[in-house]
């Protein structure tokens, strides 16, 4: 579950005041809003990348407002994917486990498992340069999932993809969410995309979050 209670977030001169939002555990929620409404800022606050001035963020019941990003048990896919240009796809999928000093066999097992789930076995030894938009999105998703987070935060994951790839990645996101029982919070400004994917749709408008469905 993701719960924001009276949260105020500051990012430079930008301020989001008194936000309340609850995403039930195991559900797929989409946060919509116009450009500049603060959707990404809110998502980054959930991830621990933006400072929460007041209020409480709870993830799966535990308060995380003061925890560092890596301590929150979340997976994060930013809008530009931010793949590591010096690393292979295999290294991306292994990254979170290597940081946790997981045994080699466990890392290799998890990499194979994720590559199979995301259909990127043939890309494992390639670098991000030259990957298609859909392939890059799969790698970014795999990297976010490698440490088995409970919560997945996605920032416009389908925005830069062609229609076929959008449908494909959308279906993959749903499959991954259901397979792992993840709570997903996705940001988008596309109504059709939200209706296709979401169990719950929220609107961020004039600094307030309203539940649409």
């Amino acid at each position: 579950m993701i719960a924001l209670e009276h949260v105020t977030i500051q990012a430079g001169d930008f301020l989001l005041r008194n936000i309340d939002l609850t995403v039930p555990a195991g559900s797929y929620a989409v946060l919509m809003g116009r450009t500049g409404a603060g959707k990404t800022t809110l998502l980054e606050a959930v991830c621990g990348l933006k400072r929460v001035v007041r209020g409480t963020i709870r993830l799966n019941g535990g308060e995380v407002s003061r925890l560092r990003p890596g301590e929150r048990g979340i997976g994060y896919v930013p809008q530009d994917r931010a793949l590591f240009q010096t690393m292979t796809v295999r290294a991306h999928l292994a990254f979170a486990l290597v940081i946790r000093k997981a045994p080699r066999e466990e890392v290799a097992r998890r990499v194979t498992e994720l590559a199979g789930l995301l259909g990127i076995e043939h890309l494992l030894d390639r670098h991000p340069h030259g990957l298609s938009g859909g392939e890059a999105q799969r790698v970014a998703l795999g990297r976010a999932l490698s440490a088995r987070p409970n919560i997945l935060c996605l920032d416009e994951p389908l925005s830069a993809l062609d229609e076929n790839t959008k449908t494909e990645i959308g279906a993959l996101l749903r499959k991954v969410q259901q397979a792992a029982g993840l709570t997903v919070l996705q940001v988008t400004h596309n109504q059709a995309e939200a209706e296709n994917l979401a169990d719950h749709i929220f609107q961020l408008h004039n600094g307030r979050v309203e539940r649409q469905t």
């Binding site: 991830c47 931010a82 940081i99 946790r100 490698s146």
Partner: peptide
């Protein structure tokens, strides 16, 4: 270099130094 990559690394369990 976009700081976004480092931010992602933080969510993956890195501290700032890592």
């Amino acid at each position: 270099i976009s700081p976004r990559c480092e931010q992602v690394a933080l969510t993956l369990g890195c501290n700032r130094s890592q």
